[in-house]
């Protein structure tokens, strides 16, 4: 489990990184925290002649906030988010999610931008950023463009970015102060990727509800029917639960494949438990 030989270069700034990516034939791969890329290289599942390390690029480590949104540089680590060293847009949701990613050793190096760029459908950030309605700022040879979350994750390990582009920052809209959330991840053991992930954000002040099912299909599934059933619901009732079960089934029917019976049970549980958390049901 040792990688093929490859050239390694550390980018000093974003233009430097983009210059390295400019030659489409060169097979250059960007490395941020390396928590997915390095194992793939070691297993020789991926071979790249050249790896460009962007983890020290100052611009990519920046974070900031406005009245409406939080901005996170692509190389902000899970650990920094977990530790509150980045602004929180969603009443603690992002800190909570960060604290549950793999193990602390992984969180110390792994980055939010690396996770979004890899677009593993089981990754926590892919689901969470979709639920939060994040926007992805991408820079390439033709300048900068912004991609909304629903347009970002196209297929497993496949995003809206070209190989010449780099994700530079993520803009996460702030929820209102009274927003609540639920996040439920089923793992077979602590620290593993989720078998299913349910993310629910309820923001009554903005009349907004967002529900995303992650890890269960090729890309995260926006559960719009479930969100509609939850929008404005004041509290958990038997009637609400019944309505949610119907809505979940409706959402799952729009998935990219039919769910096996055991998956359907787990997925329904995941979404309903995230919803109960968001509604403050213990």
């Amino acid at each position: 489990m040792k990688p093929m030989p490859f050239d390694y270069a550390r980018a000093t700034d974003v233009p430097d990184a983009l210059a390295a990516l400019a030659d489409a034939e060169a097979g250059v791969r960007v490395m941020a925290g390396g928590q997915s890329l390095v194992p793939m290289l070691n297993l020789r599942l991926a071979t790249f002649p050249r790896v460009v390390d962007i983890s020290k690029v100052a611009e990519l480590r920046e974070r900031g906030e406005t009245a409406d949104a939080v901005t996170l540089g692509a190389c902000v680590t899970h650990g920094e988010i977990e530790d509150g060293e980045a602004p929180e847009p969603a009443a603690g949701l992002m800190r909570h999610v960060a604290s549950g990613i793999a193990y602390r050793a992984v969180r110390n190096r792994g980055t939010i931008g690396g996770s979004a760029s890899l677009a593993d459908a089981s990754a926590d950030w892919v689901t969470t950023l979709l639920a939060l309605g994040a926007r992805f700022v991408i820079r390439g040879p033709d300048g900068e463009r912004e991609v909304a979350a629903p347009d970002m994750f196209l297929a497993p390990y496949f995003t809206a970015m070209t190989d010449q582009e780099l994700l530079v920052r993520i803009v996460v809209p702030k929820t209102s102060r009274d927003a609540t959330w639920g996040y439920y991840k089923v793992t077979r053991r602590s620290g593993e990727y989720g078998l299913t992930i349910g993310a629910v954000i309820l923001d009554p002040a903005r009349d907004r509800a967002s529900v995303v099912l992650g890890a269960a299909s090729r890309t995260p599934l926006a559960c719009t029917a479930t969100a509609a059933a939850l929008r404005g619901a004041p509290r958990w009732t038997d009637a609400l639960e019944a309505a949610l079960r119907v809505a979940v089934a409706e959402d799952l029917a729009r998935g990219d494949r039919p769910f096996e019976p055991h998956e359907a049970i787990m997925v329904e549980t995941t979404i309903l438990r995230a919803a109960t958390q968001a509604l403050g049901v213990s």
Binding site: R188, L195, P261, H262, I265, M266
Partner: peptide, 12 residues
């Protein structure tokens, strides 16, 4: 006894 085996048995 994995989640898959337990849930499949429950479903059946």
């Amino acid at each position: 006894i994995t989640p898959k085996r337990i849930l499949t048995a429950l479903h059946d």
